[in-house]
């Protein structure tokens, strides 16, 4: 599903420092994995490599069977569409309604309107936002916005779901609700990886874990 081999990452603006180095790990298909580590450890950077927002400076990244370094640029969009991403800051489109935000990945795929509506309504019902379908995202609470972001990430049934601190801005109750939804996706067969700096969540929901410190993997499994 995902394989990192001796992966290193340097940001062009990073003054030559390695944000990530020597990463070696695999995510099995259908697995659920916590990505742990303090702020600045490199969790977001690792996930960006995984959802093809960045390219590794060193080593090999393999996602959904494709070696990213060898993939031509024009092949990336199709691969990205098979990966769902939930960002800590939601990254919703403020000028679109809740429904339209959730529908975006299907529209990008060119799914016809008739088929799309049922799927989007189903996913909005799943995250508890169906009654808010016509609202503007700016009128939603933080928890609701994160659930909307999650519905957008999964509406196209991705094989891989990547969540970067999806509970970082939420209170406990909202955080649990989001984690429950993520675990449900896992139960339905999606490969899920969730970054968090929380020490509580992995204890509450035990699963495989990768621990990062200063850009290096310090523990596995």
């Amino acid at each position: 599903m995902v394989r990192f081999s001796r992966v290193g990452l340097r940001y062009p603006e990073g003054g030559g420092a390695w944000a990530l180095s020597g990463l070696d790990f695999m995510l099995e298909p259908g697995s659920f994995t916590w990505l742990l580590g303090p702020s600045g450890a490199g969790k977001s950077s690792l996930l960006r490599l995984m959802h093809l927002s960045l390219r590794a400076s060193d080593g090999e990244v393999e996602v959904l069977g494709a070696n990213i370094a060898r993939l031509p640029r024009r092949a990336l969009p199709a691969l990205r569409r098979r990966i769902g991403v939930v960002f800590q800051d939601y990254r919703l489109l403020p000028h679109l309604s809740v429904f339209e935000n959730a529908a975006l990945p299907l529209r990008i795929q060119g799914i016809p309107e008739a088929r799309l509506t049922a799927d989007v309504r189903e996913i909005l019902r799943w995250v508890g936002l169906l009654e808010r379908a016509d609202a503007s995202p700016s009128t939603l609470s933080g928890g609701e916005q994160q659930r909307l972001a999650l519905s957008r990430a999964v509406v196209a049934r991705p094989a891989l779901l990547v969540a970067d601190e999806p509970t970082g801005n939420l209170d406990d109750a909202q955080a649990r609700r989001v984690i429950t939804l993520l675990r449900e996706m896992h139960r339905l067969g999606t490969t899920v990886i969730v970054a968090t700096h929380s020490e509580v969540l992995p204890v509450e929901y035990p699963a495989a874990a990768l621990r990062l410190e200063s850009g290096r993997l310090v523990s596995h499994g």
Binding site: P77, R81, V85, L93, L104, I108
Partner: peptide, 8 residues
């Protein structure tokens, strides 16, 4: 965002 969601 559209780019990251896989829009060409």
């Amino acid at each position: 965002i559209l780019h990251e969601l896989g829009a060409r």
